[in-house]
């Protein structure tokens, strides 16, 4: 793609101070690595996750608006359909205006994987992997790993069932062991390799046990049959495509240490 059209970039930088910074607090917290047993699909059962940094909050509407101002190729009118389907930023009033009913400090949603990936890259970050996200999300307020805390799991399931949580302000749920907010309770979040979840019966290759998430298939191959919250997350990941834009799906960025 031609870079000529970005000749105004320097003006953009000069003008940055004029508009002021976004009000949403930013920042990352380190997550200590560890072993994880993913719900699906590993021969060995366990995976090692290295230390990494993760955004404290999901990316907000106003932060994403700033991004779109800086990178006009991600304006609604400019985003290419191979990267974002017709629902991209569909609730915005216009290319550079949030919807009137939208809370600037609630998580951005209706963004595609490509858009989320580009956003993180522009902050010199990246999307977390499924394993990284799961590692950070299994922390409760007090424990780094609350997988076996049934009341924590119950709370997560309840939050997944609650409608319209995408319009809540970031930071309105609990702060977890790592100092990260809103891992559960606001929106689903994109991960870099969400399409590593092989479900929906597409994988009909011979000799692959990891068939799908339906009925018996789910019970046969899953590592923890009682982790309903994880089933819901993995099912969600399995149902989406990278150019989808969904009202209850946002993202946050990560960084390697």
């Amino acid at each position: 793609m031609s870079r000529l059209k970005y000749i105004f970039a320097c003006f953009g930088l000069l003008a940055f101070s004029l508009t002021g910074y976004s009000q949403t607090p930013t920042g990352m917290q380190p997550i200590k690595g560890g072993t994880l047993i993913p719900l699906y699909g590993l021969d060995s059962g366990k995976v090692w996750v290295d230390d990494f940094l993760l955004d404290i909050y999901p990316v907000t509407n106003e932060q994403y608006l700033d991004f779109v101002k800086k990178y006009p190729e991600w304006k609604r009118a400019n985003a290419k359909s191979i990267f974002a389907d017709g629902n991209y930023l569909s609730e915005w009033q216009s290319d550079l205006q949030l919807g009137t009913h939208m809370n600037p400090k609630s998580p951005i949603s209706n963004v595609s994987w490509f858009a989320a990936k580009a956003y993180c890259a522009c902050q010199e970050k990246r999307l977390p992997s499924v394993d990284e996200w799961e590692l950070a999300a299994r922390a409760s307020e007090t424990k780094a790993n609350a997988e076996n805390d049934s009341s924590f799991n119950t709370r997560i399931i309840e939050s997944y069932e609650t409608p319209n949580t995408y319009s809540k302000t970031v930071g309105s749920t609990y702060k977890n062991f790592w100092g990260i907010y809103d891992m559960h309770g606001l929106v689903w979040e994109w991960t870099s390799d969400f399409n590593s979840v092989l479900i929906s019966g597409e994988s009909r290759q011979d000799g692959e046990a990891d068939r799908n998430l339906f009925c018996a298939g789910a019970a046969i191959s899953a590592s923890n049959l009682r982790d309903y919250a994880a089933f819901m997350r993995y099912a969600f990941r399995g149902s989406i495509k990278a150019n989808y834009n969904i009202k209850n799906l946002g993202f946050r960025c990560a960084k390697s240490k």
Binding site: N87, S200, S239, Y244
Partner: peptide, 8 residues
């Protein structure tokens, strides 16, 4: 297996 559909 043919009807798995994401929100929206």
């Amino acid at each position: 297996s043919s009807s798995f559909v994401a929100p929206g």
